[in-house]
Design a protein around this nucleic acid. Sequence first.
RNA 1: GCCCUCAUAGCUCAGUUGGCAGAGCGCAGUCUUGGUAAGACUGAGGUCAUGGGUUCAAAUCUCAUUGAGGGCUCCA
Length: 605
Amino acid sequence: MGRGYFFGGKMAAKHDADYKASDLYRIRHSAAHVMAEAVLEKFPEAKIAIGPPIADGFYYDFDLPRSLTPEDLEEIEGRMKEIIKGKFPFTREEISAEDAKKLFADQPYKLELIEGLEKGGLDEYGNPTDEKPIISTYKLDHFVDLCRGPHVANTGAINPNAIKLMNVSGAYWRGDEKRPMLQRIYGTAWEKPTELKDYLWKLEEAKKRDHRKLGKELDLYSINDEVGQGLILWHPKGAKIRKIIENFWSEEHEKSGYDFVYTPHIGKSQLWETSGHLGFYNENMYSPIDIEGTKYYIKPMNCPFHLYIYKSNTRSYRDLPIRYAEEGTVYRYERSGVLHGLTRVRGFTQDDAHHFCRPDQMPAEIDFVVEFSLSILRAFGFKDFQAYLSTKPEKSVGDPQLWHDAEEALEASLKRHNLPYEVDPGGGAFYGPKIDFKVNDAIGREWQLSTIQFDFNEPERFNISYIGEDGQSYRPYMIHRALLGSLERFFGVLIEHYGGAFPIWLAPIQAEIIPIADRHVDYANTIGAKLREQGMRVHVDSRSDRMNAKIRDAQNQKVPYMLVLGDQEMENNAVALRKRSGENLGAISLEALLTLWKGEVAEKV
RNA sequence: GCCCUCAUAGCUCAGUUGGCAGAGCGCAGUCUUGGUAAGACUGAGGUCAUGGGUUCAAAUCUCAUUGAGGGCUCCA
């Protein structure tokens, strides 16, 4: 999530088709070839792999005699620009597999791709395809590449001032960690230099919003080496925001018919055998703890506990639906290379819930949970959503009819809510279909948060049931869902979404009280106490710094309100309000301030 | 886990061919008492990530370990 592509994330299928037909796609694809020619000139012994266009540019993978340096990239980029100015045509040629093999005799990666094409079923990037394989090459200046195209007519169609090589990194051949590690050069290319400039500006903007940077600057959280990788320390300000999120979350759940439960952090190995996690989730679980000769595991999931709460009593069809919600803290082993700030961690708290319902309630239950998810996410300022529906994979458990009904209910609900969605056929977990929601943040990046998943596995394994109207025992539907995903990841996304300038209802400090001189500190404390009594989160800056410095600090801390207090305010029993927008509202009464504040908190702005 | 890069004060970073550890911010103290984005001075603060090696001498060269960053892979 958020990796690999800076913006746009994974593109929706229909957009993908548009993109592939676009001039930009040709430009990027062609730029990749130009780059390969430049690299081969510099390293004639280089082995070349593949070089496709991607969301914001292109890359090409090489097997090189040495690691590339930033200076190499500059040199290659410079040479690319020269090649582009040569206006060399791209000429396509269709050739036989034998000829292709001769042509690429000293290029082992290309030979492997040709074999894939020859056998059929794989395209020139080694991805599965149904198309009849035609082997074609594109020639550019001295460089001939195995390629399906399309390309620009000649390199003159590439604007040399709208391309830039970004970075070099390792990448496995064919994405397989058992195959050789190649060097991948990433580049970006646009039609116009202004578009390149905009893109680079956006990257800068994204850097400024990076939750790891803001987390430090705003003193929200930290990760400490000695504590451990991927484990979050929530500082007071971060914890305050979390508490507000949790309170809001609890109230909304309470109103919507959820019951809250609490469950332990460890459970016996038997529990995880029953649930099946020791089988299919083992590699994400930590080693067991021995307690009096019995093995206990730290929980990677909350569901087995919720199932036992369900099972603690005989359930009637009248009891359903049952909705158990818990902010459950789980620990999962993630490989060290994948950890990332707050968004990918080893210990996190899911805003988890499990729904149990009758078959006849299932479509309504799905509708409810979709609606509920959206209303929660909207409260945090997210407006655009993209839904992904993942259906039955080949290997699965559960009655195909149940799968079908569930998939239909999920899709129907997406349609009813007018949500843009994309189907990932066969992309579901083995135990049930699911919907994932991604949100677009303030600068258009996509983040995965909510997930709604059917489970046809655990109800069987735990043998849960309810008694129907006819006195017979039936198996309920079980749905897992997390709306925010995890509080850690959600917090990270929120920080980036708001760029650290949290709306007033979430701001850990809502007002910084700034006495102008020491003789105003008592008055500031009095005002502070009054506001605090009303529930406003205020802080009095009683340092002997100048007012300007205090305003600057409050501004950098992105505090929504700054209340400046001097002689005039003391005389009139008022406060001078400055907002972090820079707007100076002048002196207003406490009553006026409280009214404004209450309004803004209620509107969540 | 893999490839590349990196690790110096609480933070952001300098530190030349190996030769006494530096700045700004922050913090503490003193002065200043101010009107909407940085007032002045003084001071404290470091086992240069950790452990080996080379050298008369290592922050600097080298190896290993740990951690971080950009990717790959992974994220039922």
